[in-house]
Amino acid sequence: MPKQLAFPGLRDAMKKKVTRREQFLAEMEAVVPWSRLLALIEPHYPKAGPKGGRPPMPLETMLRVYFLQNWYALRNPMAEETLYDSDAMRRLTGIELCDDRISDETTILNFRHLLDQHGLTEAIFAEVNGHLAGKGITLRSSTLVDAPIIDAPSSTTNQAGKRDPEMTSTKKGNDWYFGMKAHVGADADSGITHSLETSTAKLHDSQVWDELLHGDEDTVWADKGYVNTARRAAFEGPGKFWGVMRKAPAGGRLHPVDEQINRLIAKVRAKVKHPFRVIKRQFGYTRTRYRGLAKNRAQLFTLFALGNLFQVRRRLMA
């Protein structure tokens, strides 16, 4: 005989364990600057639905659903279904099954299109970093530069019968990759990503440099792909250090002193990998989700904004 169901509030009160999902969502609920982000989006959000149609979903609900999508790598249909399945996710969005509408997949899609159309994901990234700077977290005296490849699906089993035409192939070591690059500048002290640019995978890392620096650095750190004599000469000066890994001359070997310098640089540069670890391992972003650079670029700004908050969540909560 089936057991009688308890009231949801009573059932939650009787729980003996807080799940990892509940703990994660509680932490992000506490550190996201909701009011600042809502004020940013509100001027672009519709005040009323179509004539004779349903009123729009509350803006805060849609923003929270959008962040859930990025935290858990959910496509639009799965985001809708998960809201029905997960009590923890409904609590974050403020949705009650008995009283409120659940955001359907079309509404979720339209909200993302709204953000893309008005360039609001870049604004979210800037607003989050401004929030962190106000908390004294970003020192910005030293920048780490990197440009990992983000894989894109290479399958041609789609309506067009072709791979994404805006993605390209490139060779790294002995392996070939197909996709795009995320060029980032990160603060060497906090690991916070303060600059982001995107390109196709075949563009050489060194082609994107000035966009990743904020201009007040006394130190820059990068791998051998960024070796450039003119840039080094322009950067060096009193109190500055050119932390780009040394490159052996053609057909020659690296000097032992340069080898030791490279080992020291590599230890510092390791921190630039942390933002990518967060979005790939914590948020499940292992490959591009959309076709075309623009849509994927927009999502990356959101992911790195949320990744910045995740990296320093304990400092913010303290």
Rank of each mutant, 00 (worst) to 15 (best):
A6M: 11
G9M: 02
V31R: 08
Y45W: 04
K47E: 10
K47I: 00
F67G: 10
F67R: 10
L68F: 02
N70M: 09
W71R: 11
E80D: 14
S86G: 12
A88I: 10
M89V: 11
L92T: 07
C98Y: 14
S103Q: 03
T106A: 12
H113A: 11
H113Q: 08
H118G: 02
E122Q: 08
A123P: 00
E127P: 00
G134L: 03
K135C: 10
T138A: 10
R140M: 14
S141C: 04
L144S: 09
D146L: 09
S155H: 04
N158D: 09
K162Y: 01
S169P: 00
T170V: 10
K172C: 07
G173I: 12
N174G: 15
D175K: 14
L196K: 08
S206F: 02
G215D: 15
K224T: 15
Y226S: 08
E236G: 14
G237P: 00
K240L: 03
A248Y: 11
G251F: 08
R253W: 01
N262K: 06
N262A: 09
N262P: 11
R263T: 03
I265A: 02
A266F: 01
K273H: 13
P275K: 15
I279C: 09
Q282Y: 07
T286C: 08
N296L: 07
A298R: 12
Q299A: 12
L300V: 04
F304M: 12
G307C: 06
R314G: 00
R315L: 06
R315S: 09
A318Q: 12
A318F: 02
